[in-house]
């Protein structure tokens, strides 16, 4: 396995290395002015420096707070509505058309409305994150729940489980692979959206740091928050995948 994986890994690192090399070459041969494109080492040094800077960490923390608050709301509402739509005809005929209308609407367009209603502080950002992460979670839950083998539910009902309880202990449980996939997508979306919201209108958070740096033409400082949020997204994604594998120990779907 390692024998086969090693050259593949090398092949995969190649394009990333090429991009970094090109970046380095552009700056060291003076083909790009540092005001437009700072050398990669300068960006890296600044990143390491900032990660030890309490003010920068405070901004990061603010971003994370908004991210997780919005994501948690999206999970709660999305899973609940998805399950309801899958289990009741009435709920389905109400939820389905609304989702059909709202899912393809760019949620970011609602941001001004959120600002107007909820103010410029945390709440509007959290609402936007929740609105954006909601639909993939809701749809994944619904699709997962309706494709649960009905005989699995029947087996539980025959053993004396009530329908209401079976919805949580059997349907949701059996749909977990799909639900968690939806949540993982929602998590990465949350990460991206919180940053964009902070860029558009905020006085703190990582996104604000980027905009602030661009206004004062501190090019290096523009890259640092962008890389930080990307790394956050990457590690949250990886962490969630690890959690998913643990939760899905018995499922055939989990690799």
């Amino acid at each position: 396995m390692t024998q086969r994986a090693a050259p593949e890994l090398l092949l995969g690192i190649l394009p990333i290395a090429l991009i970094l090399a090109l970046w380095q070459a552009l700056t060291s041969f003076d083909m790009a002015p540092p005001a437009l494109l700072p050398p990669p080492m300068a960006v890296f040094r600044r990143l390491v420096e900032q990660l030890g800077n309490p003010i920068f960490l405070q901004h990061t923390f603010t971003t994370l707070l908004r991210l997780f608050a919005g994501f948690a709301i999206a999970c709660l509402v999305g899973v609940t509505l998805g399950l309801m739509a899958s289990s009741s005809r009435v709920a389905e005929s109400a939820i389905r058309p609304i989702v059909r209308v709202l899912a393809p609407v760019p949620k970011i367009a609602l941001y001004p409305a959120f600002i107007l209603i909820l103010g410029f502080d945390h709440a509007s950002k959290i609402a936007l994150v929740a609105a954006d992460a909601l639909f993939p979670i809701l749809l994944a839950t619904y699709q997962g729940a309706v494709s649960v083998e009905p005989k699995l539910v029947w087996s539980a009902l025959a053993a004396g489980t009530t329908r209401r309880k079976a919805l949580l202990t059997v349907v949701l449980r059996a749909a977990l692979p799909s639900v968690l996939t939806g949540c993982r997508i929602g998590l990465v979306i949350s990460c991206i959206v919180v940053f964009l919201a902070e860029m558009i209108s905020s006085t703190d958070g990582l996104g604000h740091l980027l905009v602030y740096a661009s206004r004062s033409f501190e090019t290096v400082d523009m890259y640092v928050p962008l890389i930080t949020i990307s790394l956050l997204g990457l590690s949250l994604n990886a962490g969630f995948n690890a959690l998913r594998r643990r939760l899905l120990a018995g499922y055939p779907e989990a690799e």
Binding site: E149, K151, L152, W154, L176, G250, P252
Partner: peptide, 9 residues
């Protein structure tokens, strides 16, 4: 059932 319908978890 023919499909066994065991709880995979």
């Amino acid at each position: 059932f023919q499909e066994f319908a065991l709880f995979p978890w």
